[in-house]
Simulated assay, not measured.
Amino acid sequence: MTSAATDADNPQTDDRFQTARTLFFVIGAQKSGTTWMSKFMHDHPQIAVPAWKETNYWNIAEGWADVDYRLVAHQSKRDSESPIYTRFREIFRRESRAKDKAVTRALAAARNPAAPHGEYADLLFSDQAKTAQAHGELCPQYALLKPETYREMSQLGPNVRFIFIMRDPVERFISGVRHTLRKSLGRENVTQDAISKGVVETLNAPKSLALRRSDYRLTITDLEQHVPQSHIAYFFYETFFDQNEVQRLCTFLGVDHVTADVGRQVHKGAGSEAKVTQADKARIAGHLSEVYPFMRERFGDRIPEKWHASEALIAEGARAAG
């Protein structure tokens, strides 16, 4: 599939992007509060987001065949076998028709990602969103995009903003391993031994996406190549659930501050789950040894306290690896 970046210099762009007061993309790391943020934005009267949180539009436009391949495969079946969404709903049986529409539009647009991205504009600027002050979407996978794609996204309109929400890299890695094991083994089989084995296998996997997702310096460096720092807001999962941080988010997007239910953290880990050993945490920290100093230098006192405890494990992890 043609890379999204090949059309970055094409002057033709859907007019709706140009007239949007604020166009934004939440590219936060997975398991870092983006589901909570999506709910908040859906409820905010001045913010418009698609019915479904993760369209994966820009990943698919880059040619990511593995960005939930089930969507692509079943979308193709739906097109060839039926004029309705029967096949599609076989996989997302519990989801709303609005989600079907959102994904269908995103996939249709990504098949032809050349400007003016009209189908994508349909997704962001629905009839219900005409009165909104800020239009955008949330997709954690966007943290893995190429710098050229960030450039194209930043050129869609006159005021494009990016929001990157991050979580302690070791904890984010562990959360990803747990999620994978739940899907493959079932929640009841995610034991301490299973987690330990999953950690080792994931760390040793060639070009591990789990490690890439925890290496925030790569996303930050790629993003800041083409986007002014004033148009990027960085948040931390551990300190985000606070009215002051929510107000900072609203100010950044140019919308009124709305009081949020900061006590409701979606997908917060269950306390009864099997614990991760200190040795496994140290092993992960050793693989992420360059991330913590970068983040500390970049954000200083804003780094949450929990991150310091994980950083302290780096030396232990290095000894274990040696």
Score class of each variant (00 low, 15 high):
Leu145Gln: 00
Met166Lys: 12
Ser184Thr: 10
Pro140Glu: 00
Asn159Pro: 11
Glu188Gln: 12
Arg182Phe: 12
Leu145Arg: 00
Pro147Trp: 10
His179Lys: 08
Ile165Asp: 02
Val170Asn: 00
Leu181Trp: 11
Thr180Leu: 04
Arg161Val: 11
Phe162Pro: 08
Val177Thr: 07
Pro140Asn: 14
Ser184Cys: 05
Thr149Tyr: 02
Arg172His: 07
Gln155Gly: 15
Gly176Pro: 10
Pro147Met: 06
Ala143Gln: 15
Ile165Thr: 11
Ser154His: 15
Glu152Val: 14
Pro140Thr: 10
His179Tyr: 13
Pro158Phe: 07
Arg151Ile: 03
Gly186Ser: 03
Leu185Ser: 08
Leu181Phe: 12
Phe173Glu: 03
Leu156Val: 08
Phe162Thr: 00
Phe164Pro: 13
Arg167Cys: 04
Leu181His: 13
Leu181Met: 09
Phe173Cys: 04
Tyr150Lys: 03
Phe164Arg: 03
Val160Gly: 02
Leu181Gln: 11
Ser184Lys: 13
Gly176Glu: 11
Phe173His: 04
Arg151Glu: 12
Gln155Arg: 15
Pro158Ser: 15
Val170Asp: 00
Ser175Tyr: 06
Lys183Gly: 10
Val177Leu: 13
Leu181Thr: 08
Tyr150Met: 09
Met153Phe: 11
Lys183Gln: 11
Tyr142Leu: 10
Arg172Val: 04
Glu188Met: 06
Arg178Thr: 06
His179Met: 15
Val160Arg: 01
Arg151Cys: 06
Arg172Ile: 05
Asp168Leu: 07
Ile165Gln: 05
Lys183Pro: 01
Arg187Leu: 09
Pro147Ala: 11
Phe162Tyr: 13
Arg161Ser: 05
Arg172Asp: 03
Lys146Ser: 13
Gln155Phe: 08
Arg187Val: 06
